[in-house]
Every structure is written in structure tokens, then in C-alpha cells.
Design a protein around this nucleic acid. Structure first.
Lengths: 215, 215
DNA sequence: TGTACATCAGTGAACGCGCGTTCACTGATGTAC
DNA sequence: TGTACATCAGTGAACGCGCGTTCACTGATGTAC
């Protein structure tokens, strides 16, 4: 073989990784095979040595983004006391940084609406990853039954995703900021979620040095 | 002229109306000019007698859908006591009927994520209509300051939109239903929104005869 | 009232262009001997 | 160790195809005289 043993799988992973950014930025149909390959430092002809079709890459790239988000949140949660985990995730999610950098952000607000219109294969891949994300969120909600936690996880995720979408579509001005703030306070400034005695002590977004949206 | 005075504007309106359904169903890029014209009973060549570009139609069709939703909700609200209006709108929005009929439903969950990636013109048109929709929602929230009502309207709309998107992308099975139910109860079964003494009396979805999602 | 002409919404062929996909080929390396 | 051959990730030209857009044309009606 021309390259080392791991070369092909490394290239494959690089294509998926780069594509997952560009697809979140431009949408599931917003960028072509040639440009995606160029982004990974290759030419378009080699694409089909790695993927059966463009759709197959979209599925892989989407799954990759979802796995990374879920894993990152889970890891973040582990470093924090149980009763602050949910708030910490919401806090990191609903930021201008995340809003303005969809390529490195959560794949759900970027791609879910489009994916709902794709073929069965793509839709199934999505709902499996969404299920995992919901489960992870539910784990961060203490003091409730499994069912109640799952229900709150789903509703909260809906608010997070909806807020992100509306804020991004809001034009980038005051409206965008207002929507983001409204979504934040709906999830963070509510009695059952923050400690009643420390209602206003929702975690601040501290990582001012970060240039990417790690969601 | 070949046709009566109002003929051209009637045709124009018909194209916009039909396109607004198809674009919500298939996405802002999911259907071509030729098919859109065919849907209105015309051939593609005549398109540019009505619109400067495909993008211009997308903007008009989107604005049409937003205006209709906003007007319909406002009208619905007027028929109902002030303290039940918000719940009634949420109740009518978060239904399987609406989820399964995006073409006749709210344009925000169907198109907002894609529109956030369009040109400035399209984005401006969107945020203007979104602003109107938020204002209308805020009017249905009694007993709060203008600012607080607007904030709650934005957060609620975010939950509604996010719930609809996640439910549509959820695969159509149990997950979709669970998400829809979670979003509903988050908005309807909460103390500040329903009367404390009638917490479980959230309005039921009664219009079982409706075959379209009027949102 | 009758006739010639102007108007213009709508038709359908044609245009570039970009896209996803295919394919013959390349050339560096692994392997057989 | 040296040599001939096989492998296969990657290249770049080419393919159909569908899309947005353009354009010469049609033909029913309004209007001028």
C-alpha cells in the first residue's frame, strides 16, 4: 500500500470532521462534494473510496457532531456538583459565542429541520443520536423520576434549540440578543432549577478566551 | 390586455400561496421554479413576469405564511378570555396535526434555520415578521410589564418552535410523541400560566375534524 | 360600429452552470520470490 | 538483499442531469381612429 496502515481511516476521519463543520455552517445541502474534499486537502474524485454517497457522509458527519456534543456535555457535567450540572450546560449552550459559530456548535439547531425532510436512513440516524442526547441531559437532572427527568430534558432541549434558531435567524441585532437572553432566563431563572436562595447566581459565561463554540 | 384587470395580481397571489405551502414542506431550496409554477397551473417561463428572482418569491411566500399565522392566532385570541389566550395558542400549536402537516403550519420551525443562512434581504424580511409574531404573542400574556411579556413570548415561542422541530425530526414514532407532550406540558402545566386552582384544565385539542394544521 | 394596432400574461425551447457520480489512470509502497 | 509485480488511495477529466434564468413568440383583449 502506498500509505501506512492507518492512513485511510485517518483521511476518512478528517473528511468527516471537516465536513461536519461546513455542513453545520452551510446546511445539509449548502456545500458540494468537491468543496468538502478540498476542505480536507483532497480532490473530489477520491470521495467514493471513502463514502458510498454524499448522503452517507452527511449521516456520518452529523453523527460525529452529535457524539462530540453529547460527550463534551457529559464530561463537563462530571466536573460539577450534581445540582449545578443542568444549569451549567444551559449556560454554555445559550451564548453569543455558540450562536455566532454554528460550525463548531450543536448540530441540532443547525440541521434538524433539514434532516426531518431527508430519507428514512438519515432520519433514523438522527433520532438515534437525539435520543442519546436527551438521555444524557436527563442524567443531569436530579431529584426526579426517570420519566420526569426525561420529560424535562426534552422540553429544555426544545427551548435551547428553539432559542438558538430564533436568535440566529433574528438578524444579528438587538432582537437576536433579546431572544437569547429570554431563553436563558426561562431555563435558568426559574425556581425548580436554581436554588431558591441563590436565584440570581446562575453561572456566568467565563471562558472569554474561547474562540470556538464548544457545543 | 388579455385578462381582466385583477388577473395578474390574482395569479401572483396564487403562486405565492401555493409556493408558501410547498416551501414549508420541502424547505427553501427543496423545490424548483418549474415545479412551483406547475403547482399554480402555469409554466416556468412566466415566472419572471411576477418575480425578480426565485429568492424574491421565497421572501414573499415566507412573509405570506408568517402574516397568516400571526393573523390567525390574533383572531383566535380575540374570541377567548384574556387569561386563556396564551394557553389556547400553545394548545393549538403543539399538536400532532401541526407536526405532521408542515405545509400548512407555522413557517418558523419549517424555514427559520435555513433562512438564517440566506442573504441579508431574506434575513431582514424574516426578522421583521418574527418581531410581529413575538409582539402578537406578548399581547396575549396578561398581568406583566410590556418587557416581561415580550420576554416570555420569546421564550415560549422558542420552546414551541424547538419542540416542533425536534418532534418532526424525531422519526415519527414514540420519541416524536414524547417530545411533543414534553413541550406541551412545559408550557401549559406550569403555575404562572394556568390558574393555580385549575392546573390540570389545560384546553384540550378539540378540532378533530380539521384536516389541516392552521398555524 | 368596425378595423388595425398595441399590449402583455403566459408558453416552451434554449442557455449556462454546478452538481453528484463514474472512470481510466498514477505512483508510492508492500509483498512474493 | 535485490527485483518484479500487485495494491489501492488519490487524481482529474468527463458524464448526465436539473436548476435558475433568458428570450422569441403567441394570442386574446383593450384602445385608437
Amino acid at each position: 500500500m502506498r500509505y501506512s496502515k492507518e492512513h485511510k481511516s485517518e483521511t476518512h476521519a478528517r473528511i468527516v470532521k471537516k465536513a461536519s463543520v461546513k455542513l453545520r455552517e452551510r446546511g445539509a445541502h449548502g456545500i458540494g462534494v468537491a468543496d468538502l474534499m478540498k476542505d480536507a486537502g483532497l480532490t473530489h474524485g477520491g470521495f467514493y473510496a471513502h463514502f458510498a454517497s454524499r448522503e452517507a457522509l452527511v449521516i456520518e458527519a452529523f453523527a460525529y457532531a452529535m457524539d462530540r456534543s453529547t460527550a463534551r456535555w457529559r464530561k463537563k457535567a462530571e466536573e460539577i456538583p450534581l445540582d449545578q450540572r443542568f444549569a451549567a450546560i444551559v449556560d454554555a449552550y445559550l451564548t453569543p459565542l455558540h450562536r455566532d459559530d454554528p460550525g463548531n456548535g450543536c448540530a441540532v439547531p443547525a440541521l434538524a429541520a433539514e434532516i426531518a425532510r431527508e430519507g428514512v436512513k438519515t432520519r433514523r440516524a438522527f433520532s438515534a443520536k437525539l435520543e442519546q442526547m436527551i438521555d444524557m441531559m436527563a442524567e443531569q437532572i436530579p431529584g426526579r423520576s426517570r420519566k420526569a427527568a426525561r420529560e424535562q430534558a426534552m422540553a429544555s432541549l426544545a427551548t435551547m434549540v428553539g432559542t438558538m434558531i430564533l436568535s440566529r435567524a433574528g438578524g444579528g441585532g438587538e432582537l437576536s440578543d433579546d431572544i437569547l437572553a429570554a431563553g436563558r432566563s426561562a431555563l435558568l431563572d426559574r425556581q425548580p432549577l436554581a436554588k431558591p436562595t441563590a436565584k440570581k447566581r446562575a453561572p456566568k459565561t467565563t471562558k472569554t478566551t474561547a474562540s470556538r463554540a464548544p457545543n
